[in-house]
Design a protein around this nucleic acid. Structure first.
Lengths: 161, 161
DNA sequence: CATAATTGTTAGCCAAGGCTAAACTATTTG
DNA sequence: CAAATAGTTTAGCCTTGGCTAACAATTATG
């Protein structure tokens, strides 16, 4: 709580969208579909990204570390690792630490880049570091490449002055 | 696809976060926890928000409309409505259209406001309308009130000039 | 006004992502 | 080097949010 509990702004400048017509049905459905799809990959990406970070910063990724950092039980991690294996994102021998496959490394890097852009963008916007970290974690999977590019441009403008 | 498929920016100005140390374990876990919690309420909020929109724009919310706009089967909607009922967010009589309870209306309004702020913000940033709509749909549930306030301020600055 | 078409519900299936408890493996240490 | 501790996996359970198919109610129409 704390940082995230502040008075919610109650207005939007100019015409509120509430007055706008609803989008055409097909388009509307596609918007929700995009979100549902993002959902399916989100967790996977979070695990892969975290595993990449652990390898980079700690030299290895142990299940126990993943569990404590993700805030879930070891059993959950174990099950997830099996999935990542099936998806060809990690290789693992029982009771040994993990490695990312080439695909896994690629995914980790893309996720990491996106994450960083969103985080830097929020900070450049003026959001405090702690909140920015939390928001970035949730937002990263829902930001299109178009928006990412624009965020990057914004960061550049802010820092080059 | 289309709008969302563009070259991913590969750099972040200044120090990449990848070089930063990992957050302390407890904090890290809390970040993920926040995202997991958001997840649980996301869908609920989407349904409630959509029901509110339908009532406002169409005069009523029928299950069939919800199904086609969400892009899911009617059976799924029916089941979901039962849950919303249990949660005290809607009232419904079998084979009749839905109404939001007071709590439901409150939730719909908060969601709508957040959604609008994020959407307007993205447009003010320069994101094209179509992409902005998709991104807003996914992002809205992960934006803290602090960030929303800052987005609102940004919108005001952009439009008041 | 009887029947067809539309809309809503129920039953029963599935996969994902949590959990706890118990079993197994590896590592550390007395 | 044996026993204790730490780490990992498996089994089995639960809830959510999808689905299809079958049935029920409502509404529209010939």
């Amino acid at each position: 709580m704390s940082d995230r509990d502040q008075s919610l702004p109650h207005t939007v400048s100019g015409a509120s969208n509430s007055g706008d017509a609803l989008p055409p049905i097909g388009e509307h459905a596609r918007q929700y579909e995009t979100v549902r799809n993002a959902h399916e990959t989100e967790l996977i990406e979070d695990y892969v990204e975290l595993i990449g970070d652990l390898i980079q910063h700690r030299g290895e990724a142990r299940a126990a570390d993943i569990a404590s950092r993700m805030g879930v039980s070891q059993a959950t991690v174990s099950k997830m690792i099996r999935r990542l294996n099936e998806l060809g994102l990690v290789t693992s021998k029982p009771y040994r630490s993990l490695f990312l496959t080439e695909d896994g490394q690629k995914m980790a890097e893309v996720s990491r880049t996106r994450h960083d852009i969103v985080l830097h963008f929020l900070r450049a916007l003026g959001v405090n570091d702690h909140t920015a970290r939390i928001d970035a974690e949730g937002m990263e999977h829902h930001v299109s490449n178009e928006t990412l590019s624009i965020m990057q441009r914004f960061i550049d403008q802010q820092t080059q002055r």
